[in-house]
């Protein structure tokens, strides 16, 4: 990786380390709550907390690490360094994605371990849990893209609204699909073709969003 991109990614991690510690701590607490009986109140709160932590982190990262570069006028400082617009965008994507992916992976691996280690939870739940978490990742990529491309709070808020509606709609929608509903209640780990197709579409959209962000950034003629 280009050393300047490396510097910028490290810089974002250093600037946001306190915030990241809080979110990682909250995620660990949420995962610890999943150790409770899966019919208990604490378990339910743990699931809600995992989703909440990821959603709030996505919004927080975009406002504090993308939009604030514009509103706090630190973008001029960064862009005066030996960096191109494309490198800046790439560094922002890498920094934000890595910061989001760390608690996201904790949630993914943690939920898998809980599902697979408990007889009371069907193994088929792992697929829908994964799809739901990837949908949250997709929502975050959309919010980050709008934040980076527009540099405005309005653009990011619009994307947040869209992402929230999209996530609710996604959950409601996939539960209406018989193949997914049946697999959720079964003990089979193997993904069916419907789930794999949805996963593929999600990954294509994520790659597309990141690609569009880079292309738009590269074509920008005004950076500040």
């Amino acid at each position: 990786m280009n050393s300047m991109i490396n510097h910028l990614v490290r810089k974002d991690w250093q600037i946001n380390r306190t915030m990241m510690s809080i979110y990682l701590g909250a995620m660990l607490v949420a995962l610890a709550m999943l150790l409770a009986d899966d019919n208990s109140f604490v378990f339910g709160i743990g699931v809600i907390l995992i989703l909440t932590v990821l959603m709030i982190l996505g919004i927080h990262l975009t406002t504090s690490n993308v939009i604030s570069e514009h509103t706090q006028k630190t973008l001029a400082f960064i862009m005066s360094l030996p960096v191109s617009g494309r490198q800046y965008a790439l560094a922002k994507i890498l920094a934000n994605l890595s910061m989001f992916l760390l608690p996201w992976l904790l949630a993914l691996v943690g939920s898998w371990l809980i599902i697979l280690s408990r007889d009371s939870l069907p193994n088929g739940l792992a697929a829908i849990t994964t799809l739901a978490l990837i949908e949250i990742l997709l929502s975050y990529c959309l919010i980050m893209m709008m934040g980076l491309v527009t540099g405005s709070q309005h653009g990011a808020i619009g994307a947040m609204a869209l992402a929230n509606l999209g996530f609710q709609g996604f959950l409601w929608g996939i539960l209406q699909i018989p193949a997914i509903a049946q697999h959720r209640d079964s003990n089979s780990l193997a993904w069916n073709s419907t789930e794999l197709s949805i996963l593929a579409i999600q990954l294509v959209i994520i790659v597309g969003l990141l690609g569009i962000t880079l292309v738009v950034q590269q074509r920008k003629t005004n950076f500040i």
Partner: peptide, 29 residues
């Protein structure tokens, strides 16, 4: 611009440093 900016120092009334970081951190950066 990447090559040119290696040899340019820029200060603007409109430019801000990271408010939560110290000057020492900026110097190291």
């Amino acid at each position: 611009q990447v090559l040119a900016k290696r040899e340019i120092g820029y200060v603007s009334e409109d430019m801000r440093l990271y408010p939560k970081a110290s000057l020492a951190w900026h110097m190291q950066f």
